[in-house]
C-alpha cells in the first residue's frame, strides 16, 4: 500500500492524474476511431457532436452547480417541461415565441430550485429531488402523459442541420457556452468567487463573498441551460414528450465528473466538462456502431466514473500526501490550487 502511495504521489503520475481528462479522451477517441471507420471524417464528427450537444448543454449548467458543491437532479425534468412548452404553445405564441417561452420555463424552474436551496436552506440533493418529481409530474399533467408534436416539422430542422458544412446550431451553442463559461470561471473575479464558495462556503461568506447569490445564480443557470437543451431537442425532433430526459441527469453528472469536477465542490473546469462530454460521445458512437447493447455502455461509463473518483481520492485527498515532500513540488501545488 505504501509503495502504491509513493507511485501515486510521484510528480509524473500526479500530472497524468491532473490531466486525466485528456488521457481518457485520447484513449476513447483512439479506441472508437479504430472501431468505427471514418470517424475522423469531419462529417461524422459533426454528427456525433450534434448528438452530444443536448447532453453537453445540460452538463455545462451542472458544472457550475457541482463546482459550488451542490447537486441538481431536476435537469432532466426541466429539459422535458421546457421542450413541451416550446412545442405545445406554438399555436398560441408562434414558433419563436414558444421556443423563447420554453427557455423561460427552464429559467423559472432554476429560480424555484434556487429558492428551495438558498432561501429555504434545503439540502440541494433533496430540494432538487422534490422539484424533479414535481416538474416531471407537471409534464405528465399538462400533456396527459401523451407526447405532443408541432405543426411544422421543417422549422426545427434549423437546429440540427449543419451550418454551411460545419457544425449544427446546437453544437455551436454548446461550444460557445463552454468557452464563455471557461473564460468567466478563469478570468473574472466573479468566476474565481465560484471556486471560493465551492471550496468553503463559510470562509467565502466571511471574506465578503455573497455565497447565497452565487448558489442561487448557479441553479438559475443550470435551469436555463437545461431549458435551452430541452427546447432544442424538442424542436429537432418536433416532439415534446413527458418522458424526455429521464436518463440525462445521470449521464450529465457523469460527464462533469469525468471532466475532473469534484462533487465536494471547489475544483473543476469548463474545459474538463467538454472533455467529459466528448469521452461519453466517443464511447457511445463506438459501442453503437459495434451494436453493443446499451447496458454494456452503462457498465463502461459506470466503471470509468468509479475508477476516476477512486484515483482522485488516492492522489489528492489523503492527509499523508498533503504532508509529503511531493506537496512542495510545483505540480503538487498546482493540483491543490483551485486554478487548475
Amino acid at each position: 500500500m505504501n509503495a502504491l502511495k509513493k507511485i501515486c504521489e510521484s510528480p509524473a503520475v500526479l500530472t497524468l492524474i491532473h490531466y486525466r481528462v485528456v488521457v481518457i479522451l485520447v484513449v476513447a477517441v483512439i479506441l472508437s476511431a479504430s472501431l468505427v471507420p471514418g470517424l475522423t471524417e469531419f462529417r461524422t464528427l459533426s454528427l456525433s457532436l450534434d448528438r452530444a450537444a443536448t447532453l453537453g448543454l445540460v452538463a455545462v449548467g451542472l458544472t457550475v452547480v457541482l463546482l459550488l458543491g451542490k447537486l441538481d437532479l431536476s435537469v432532466g425534468s426541466i429539459l422535458a417541461l421546457s421542450g413541451i412548452a416550446a412545442i405545445g404553445l406554438q399555436p398560441q405564441l408562434g414558433q419563436l415565441g414558444a421556443a423563447a417561452f420554453g427557455v423561460c420555463v427552464g429559467l423559472l424552474a432554476g429560480v424555484l430550485n434556487g429558492v428551495l436551496v438558498v432561501l429555504m436552506q434545503i439540502n440541494s440533493l433533496v430540494a432538487t429531488l422534490a422539484s424533479m418529481i414535481f416538474l416531471r409530474a407537471m409534464c405528465h399533467f399538462v400533456t396527459e402523459s401523451n407526447p405532443i408534436s408541432g405543426a411544422d416539422p421543417l422549422f426545427g430542422l434549423a437546429v440540427s442541420r449543419s451550418l454551411g458544412g460545419t457544425f449544427s446550431l446546437r453544437t455551436f451553442i454548446f461550444l460557445i457556452a463552454i468557452v464563455l463559461l471557461f473564460l468567466w470561471l478563469t478570468y473574472t473575479v466573479a468566476g474565481r468567487h465560484v471556486y471560493a464558495v465551492g471550496s468553503n462556503e463559510d470562509a467565502a461568506t466571511a471574506s465578503g463573498v455573497r455565497s447565497g447569490r452565487y448558489i442561487f445564480g448557479a441553479f438559475v443557470f443550470s435551469g436555463l441551460m437545461a431549458g435551452t437543451a430541452g427546447v432544442m431537442q424538442s424542436l429537432a425532433t418536433n416532439t415534446g414528450s413527458p418522458v424526455f430526459g429521464s436518463t440525462v441527469t445521470l449521464t450529465a453528472i457523469a460527464a462533469v465528473v469525468i471532466g475532473g469536477t469534484r462533487l465536494e465542490g471547489g475544483r473543476g473546469s469548463a474545459l474538463g466538462t467538454l472533455g467529459g462530454v466528448l469521452v461519453l460521445a466517443a464511447i457511445t458512437t463506438a459501442l453503437e456502431y459495434e451494436s453493443v447493447p446499451s447496458y454494456y455502455q452503462n457498465i463502461v461509463t459506470g466503471s470509468i466514473l468509479l475508477l476516476l473518483i477512486l484515483l482522485d481520492r488516492i492522489a489528492s485527498n489523503s492527509p499523508r500526501s498533503a504532508l509529503s515532500l511531493s506537496s512542495l513540488l510545483p505540480v503538487r501545488s498546482k493540483e491543490q490550487s483551485p486554478a487548475r
Binding site: I253, A254, L263, P293, Y295, N298, I299
Partner: peptide
C-alpha cells in the same frame, strides 16, 4: 473505507450493477 462521495459512488455502482444484471 475509501471515503468516496456517497451520491456519485452509488450512482456509479448502480449503473454498473444494473448493466451486469441486464447482461
Amino acid at each position: 473505507y475509501a471515503r468516496l462521495n456517497p451520491v456519485i459512488t452509488t450512482l456509479a455502482t448502480g449503473t454498473i450493477v444494473l448493466g451486469v444484471a441486464q447482461a
